[in-house]
Every structure is written in structure tokens, then in C-alpha cells.
Simulated scan of single mutants.
Amino acid sequence: MVTTKTEEPANGAGGVVSSIRGALAGPIAGVCSRFITYPPDTIKARLQVQGAAIHNGQKLYTGTWNAVVQVAQHEGLPGFYRGFGAVALGSVPANLAYFGGYEAAKALVPAGWGMLGDMAVGAGAQLLAGLVFTPVDIVKERLQVAPLMRGAYSYSGPGQAVRELIRQNGLRGLLKGYWATNAVWLPWNTIFIAAYEGSKRAAARAGATQATARDGRPGDAAAAAGEAEMHAASEAAAATSSSTRSGSSEEELSPLVLGICSAGSASLAGVLTHPADVVKTRLQVLSACQAHARTTAWSLAVHMWRTEGPKVFMTGLGARIIQLAPGTALSWVIYEPIKKVLAPPHP
């Protein structure tokens, strides 16, 4: 007979405990990953915005590597970390909201929803986290691209950027582009979480199959029965929804496997949502200019299409994937073990 690890309830007290664990583990994972991946995020933001900030009739950067070289030459290491102070401070509440929302959604989504349940979990986590991420994102991106926007604004640091946002548009200024942000991150998270949870289940099934083949004994009735029971358990786990997906086999996945699952899923979601990310970045940056104060995401996208062509919507994709894939992998490779450490001991 196969013995399994006692699992927390998918709802009630167990759901609350999971949410608290996620809220505590998330900020640690988020700050570590953002520090490592912040430089390519700065390059991505500048590449996306420079089409609206032409210098002397031509673009400042010819491509990703050229942008890296120029920032290094003219601004040094601090240039790659413009606005990181806002991100470091904002990452704590933002990741608390995201990972806490992720665990809470897992507890609330009914069993048996499969991939649809995974997508619902991703959407729930993003809608909650977006309320915190949006102000952080606006301040971060305006500071990142400040050298391209001389004359439009000049901030001495995150504090002044926040004060200016509030002065110009009231508290609503802190949520400028909330739905434009969600136009990127809502589909990104639904795709990412569905792909991530699905790939984890596939990896767990593959591991269980290999273990069964390695440990099986031909002609041994007890072993055959155990193999059949393990196979049935594996199939049941595959059909289980995201609200009960934290089975023991998945909990035992190695950091390397978790990293591959999360990096691959993040890259897929990043490619599919990149056009919306370009529009979102420009909207948040250009809204600092009086001439663009009333610009909407749709009108901006139409203008970009007419003046720069369709290729503009893939600007900075390489830098974004370089930032997304390792950053997301690092976040989840750190998050999953910390969450297990914070788990109450099983009776």
C-alpha cells in the first residue's frame, strides 16, 4: 500500500494558512529576483520608450546590446538600477499581495477545473497584486527612462516621483494605467500559472513513472499492485485542479525542474503578451507629459502602428525575456522551498 503525505485542506483554515505562507515567502523571493534581473528590465523599458523620445532625429539605441553598452559607458552601474529603490520598497507589499492572492485563489477555485482553474488562480493573483504593482511600476519606469525624457520631467528620486504623480492627478495618478497594466499581466499570469502548474504536474508524473520503472519487480504481485496504485494516484493528481495541486509528488520536485518549468512558462507568456507591454510602458511614461495627459492605451497603440509600424510592438522582446525567464525562475525556486519551511508540521 502506498502511503502519502497528509495534505492541508484546500479550503477553510488550511486555505488561510496557505495564504499566509505565500504572503510571507513571496516578498523574499521577489526582492532577490528583481535585484538580479533589474538591469535587463531597464534596457527593455528604454528600448520601448525611445520611439517616442527621438534625439536629434534618430533613435538613441540601435538595439539591445547597443543600449547595454551606452548605459554602461555614460551612466555606469547606477544607470542600470535607476528606480530600483522604489521597486525594492514596493516589492514587499506587491509580492505579499501576489503570492498571498495566488494561494488564496488556489484555496477558492473548485476542484476539478483543471487548466481553467489554473488560469483563474493566475487572474485572481494579478487583480489583487495589480493594485500595488501599478504605482511601483509607474515610478520605476519613469526613473528608468528619465535620461530619454529630459525636458518632460526630472525626478531626484522615487519620493519626488510619487509626489509629482499625486500633485498632477491626485491619488488616481498612482493607478494610471492600471487596466493597461492588467492588459499585460492578467493574460500573462493566466498563461504563466496554467503552463507552470501543468508542467509541474507533467514533471511529477514523469518522475513517478521513472521511479515505478526503476523500482518495479517483474513477477512480484505486490510490486505490481503498488505500481498500479501509484499510477492511479498520479493520474488523479493530473486531473486535480489548481486548488488542490500541491500534492506530495510536486512538492518533491528539484529546484532545477522548478526553474525549468517556471522559466519556460514565463517565456511563453512573455512572447504572447509583449505587444501589450510595449503600449503599457509608453502610456505610463508619456502620461508625465502634459501633451499626453489624456492619452489612452488604445489611441496610443493606434498612433504607434501608424507612425512606427507593427514591428514597434515587439521592441525590447529580447531584453524582456532575458529579464522574465531567469527572474521568474528565481522567484519560484526561492518561493516554493520557503513556503515548505513555513508549513506547519504534519501530525
Rank of each mutant, 00 (worst) to 15 (best):
I321L: 15
G130V: 12
T315Q: 10
Y81V: 02
G114P: 08
D215C: 06
L47D: 08
I166C: 06
R205A: 14
G57A: 12
L60I: 13
V71W: 00
Q50W: 04
L256W: 06
T134C: 13
S241A: 12
T190V: 12
D220F: 09
C32R: 01
A125Y: 04
K339D: 09
T37S: 13
G101K: 01
T37K: 03
T240L: 10
V121S: 00
A23D: 08
V109S: 04
L253M: 02
G309Q: 04
G100Y: 06
I334E: 04
V2D: 11
L47T: 13
S199T: 15
L148W: 01
G63C: 08
E197M: 11
P27G: 08
S91Y: 06
I20N: 04
V92S: 04
P344K: 08
Q70E: 14
G173K: 01
V49F: 00
E75W: 01
A291Q: 15
A123Y: 07
S299Q: 09
R306F: 10
Y153L: 07
M304G: 01
Y196R: 00
V31Q: 06
G159P: 04
E336N: 13
T37I: 15
A13E: 07
S33Q: 10
V184N: 03
H292M: 03
V71T: 08
S18A: 14
G198V: 02
T6F: 06
F35T: 14
Y38L: 09
R205Y: 06
A161H: 01
G22M: 04
A204S: 14
T273I: 02
T281G: 00
T6L: 12
L175P: 00
G83L: 05
A152E: 11
R306G: 08
C261L: 06
A224H: 13
I322Y: 03
A297G: 06
A276K: 00
V257D: 01
G76M: 12
G157E: 12
L171A: 13
S254V: 09
T244L: 12
R282P: 06
E8F: 07
P147V: 04
D277Q: 14
G316C: 07
F313A: 12
V16R: 01
L330M: 15
R150G: 11
A224G: 14
A111L: 07
H292R: 03
G173Y: 07
K200G: 13
L330K: 01
A263N: 05
G14I: 00
Y38S: 03
Y81E: 02
S249G: 03
T4L: 11
G90F: 10
A23S: 14
I260T: 03
L286D: 02
L324R: 11
G327T: 05
E227H: 11
P93V: 06
I20T: 07
T240D: 08
V279R: 00
R282M: 08
V121T: 05
G63D: 13
Y98T: 05
L128A: 07
A238C: 11
A223Y: 07
